[in-house]
Design a protein around this nucleic acid. Structure first.
Length: 271
DNA sequence: CTATGGACCTGAATGC
DNA sequence: TGCATTCAGGTCCATA
């Protein structure tokens, strides 16, 4: 479910509530994508220092080591005061803390919780080393982005999704950013000129920042850590709107498949 | 190195 | 109603 905005909304709702919490209990459910990497009991007594985000990963710094959390396609985190309720079939990781209970719910189990001794250790590097630049920071430079695009012959939609140039742009926001930039998703990245690269750079920042401000997109089941819905889907221009009129020009929105993923675009506005 | 297709897993929606 | 097929917000891995 989650792309960068949903992860960031989760982080914003959770960071202040969990900072300073001491871990008192750990429960694992069914296996996630990767094993935790340590005995769950070894986390007891650790203190949560802060919660950061890198791409679609949440990094939970502890007084010793850190946890890397990924929500995959269907994951969400919930945090509540008081003891954790009895776990359901899809609750696969619980932390009981002095500040409340944190629970990872993930029906498809493409998510993960992995322990690393430190941020540069091999376990963490394997997950984080290949990630591209953070789009909502100054490190996301338009000229460098254009230079990166020029080296790629794949369709621009798939280059955005790959996440090795810029992180956090998933299937919804890739279609939305390309709409805002007026670029066809099938265009080879290497054929995008400087002017359109600048537009796309701005569109990515714009769409992601607006989505964070709206609380993310709730399509099926996304909710923030306190259960709140997101509202960005209400202002999506093309995602999930195949056959409906483009909000700008009225032309029916089209859907196509790129690398097994649905892509939406307006054949009139995007050239 | 880049690009592509399949894999992982479950539930909901759709089609016959 | 029942059963098979398709689809879903990610990303890793093997293969060309």
């Amino acid at each position: 479910m989650p792309e960068l905005p949903e992860i960031e909304v989760t982080r914003l709702g959770l960071a202040d509530r969990i900072a300073g919490a001491r871990i008192e209990g750990v429960r694992l459910g069914k296996p996630l994508r990767w094993p935790l990497g340590v005995e769950p009991a070894s986390l007891i007594g650790r203190t949560v220092l802060r919660l950061r985000r890198r791409g679609k990963y949440l990094l939970m710094d502890l007084d010793e080591g850190l946890l890397l959390l990924h929500l995959g396609m269907s994951g969400s985190l919930n945090f509540g005061d008081g003891p954790l309720p009895d776990p359901g079939a899809h609750d696969h990781f619980d932390l009981a803390t002095t500040r409340g209970g944190l629970r990872l719910h993930d029906p498809r189990r493409f998510g993960a919780v992995v322990h690393a001794a430190y941020e540069d250790d091999p376990v963490a590097r394997r997950l984080l080393a290949g990630l591209g630049v953070e789009p909502l920071t100054d490190a996301f430079d338009a000229a460098a982005f254009h230079a990166g695009l020029r080296r790629r012959g794949a369709p621009i939609k798939q280059v955005l999704l790959a996440g090795d140039l810029v992180v956090g742009v998933g299937n919804i926001y890739a279609s939305e950013a390309l709409f805002l930039a007026g670029i066809r998703p099938t265009t080879r990245a290497s054929r995008i000129g400087a002017g359109r690269a600048m537009k796309l750079h701005a569109a990515i920042r714009n769409v992601l920042a607006r989505a964070v401000a709206r609380g993310g997109s709730t399509l099926r089941d996304f909710a923030g850590p306190g259960g709140e819905s997101g509202y960005f889907q209400l202002e999506a221009n093309v995602y999930g709107r195949a056959g409906l009129p483009c909000r700008v020009c009225g032309t029916p929105v089209r859907m196509l498949r790129q690398g097994q993923r649905a892509t939406f675009y307006c054949p009139q506005c995007q050239t």
